[in-house]
Nucleic acid binder design. Sequence first.
DNA 1: CTTGACCCTCACATTGCTGTCAGACTGTAG
DNA 2: CTACAGTCTGACAGCAATGTGAGGGTCAAG
Lengths: 115, 115
Amino acid sequence: MQIGDLSKRTGISIRMLRYYEEEGLLTPARRASGYRDYGKAEERIARRIRLLSEAGLKLDTIRFLLPCVLSDRPDFEPCPEVLATLRREVTGLDDKIDCLQSSRAILTGYLDRLG
Amino acid sequence: MQIGDLSKRTGISIRMLRYYEEEGLLTPARRASGYRDYGKAEERIARRIRLLSEAGLKLDTIRFLLPCVLSDRPDFEPCPEVLATLRREVTGLDDKIDCLQSSRAILTGYLDRLG
DNA sequence: CTTGACCCTCACATTGCTGTCAGACTGTAG
DNA sequence: CTACAGTCTGACAGCAATGTGAGGGTCAAG
């Protein structure tokens, strides 16, 4: 699959797909022509990267956690630092979810009182 | 209250408090000396701005919604555009909350299977 | 063989914050 | 009066993500 196809399927801009590669997150095969060639696996990775990225994880962090993030079951014991990062990010997400819910409450609160 | 005090109380950097003012979100009184003078009302506004800002709303949007966001009860009917923005931001937050929860599930999923 | 749609790399620009530093003033405590 | 901490403005810097454009190759259809 060419980059444009993957872009359309995932909604991730071509620019960002190349950027993910530049950052070492997603490394598609190359054709003889130099064209990137993405498969199903890469598509899954791309979607996952975008999900985490939209959740506010930095690409650095995602790169660091990618092995865990991709495996469905732990086939290896991650090093303590990865583990710590994992936990840190989870509590970070919890905080952020709280924050979003409070913000949501403020906005809907106003809307509700209106109707 | 001086800017440094407010900064300590809210955890918002002095830089950002001044930036909020520059962006027209928070306009404290001024002493004769030129020093900013924040009261309880401004503290509440500052906290609210930061909450929404951390939730991912842009300062532009916050400025636009600020009247609604500050009032506890609607004392006026906001114009349709404000209403639309309000609704748009709520669904945006909903999407984001979903996204964060999925991301959280990915991370905790791995951690859980580990223990 | 040409054309049009894709793709490549490289590099610069922009957005939205956020930090930091310089040079100058304020305010208080000794 | 001095010293020190706090504040003021303004400007420049950095970051992470993203857009955009130039200059040039690839490839399938006609």
